[in-house]
Simulated scan of single mutants.
Amino acid sequence: MHVRQTRLSGVLLFEPTPHTDERGWFSRTFDAASVADAGIDPTGFVQDSQSRSLLGVIRGLHGRRGTGEAKLVRCAHGAIHDVVVDARPDSPTFGRWEAFTLDDTNLASLYIPRGCLHGFQALTSIADTCYRIDAHHDPTQDVAVRFDDPELGIRWPLEVTLVSDKDRRAASWSALRAQLRDASATVSGPV
């Protein structure tokens, strides 16, 4: 498995080498040794989740306050346009975003460290997205920024077909930045 550092500090792309023959293919989707070699505790993941999205659906941009959560994300079926926003005030790439295509052909997994926002758009009629998460979900710590925030200027490749009401009502990037600057709203790592 090849591990590639992206343009965002600490965001890694794990690229497997599928074994193909007349039957189809076989690929490792998680390798504890590769994860450990990249500086991530492979035993730290406590939850696996999966979502199914239809063509054009956007989920995100989501993050967590408090101790937050890191994620290892992959697309098991179909394809997604996956976006990570660095929301760590002390990071050299704070405020920047990067997009990745994750699909059932490249089989890559994207490591998203604590303190980043995450969202994606389904690029196929059905897209199944798998998440390996290092913290149990605490809904009181949820943070969201609008997927179409003009300051971030994220370019989504397809027309948006559906976004949850919660995501449509999400805060702006500037509002989140103000919270991060506010000493009374100190975030101990992720947002």
Rank of each mutant, 00 (worst) to 15 (best):
A183P: 11
R146C: 09
A185R: 15
F14V: 14
L158G: 04
R96L: 15
T161K: 05
L117T: 08
V143R: 06
H136V: 05
V46A: 12
D21H: 10
A70M: 03
D148T: 05
F26E: 03
Q141S: 15
L8P: 08
P139V: 02
A108Q: 13
D41Q: 01
G60L: 02
T93R: 11
T43A: 14
S172C: 12
Y111H: 10
F30L: 07
V35R: 03
L176A: 01
D165K: 11
G56C: 06
Q141C: 07
A170R: 11
Q47R: 15
R52K: 09
R177C: 14
E69I: 00
R168T: 09
R7D: 07
E98I: 05
V187I: 10
R181D: 09
L72C: 14
A122G: 10
V35L: 03
I133A: 12
G39W: 01
D148N: 13
P18M: 15
M1D: 04
L176E: 07
Q121C: 06
K166D: 14
K71N: 06
T186S: 10
D165L: 14
L12N: 11
T93N: 11
L162H: 14
R64M: 13
R155G: 02
L61R: 08
N106R: 05
I40C: 05
L55C: 01
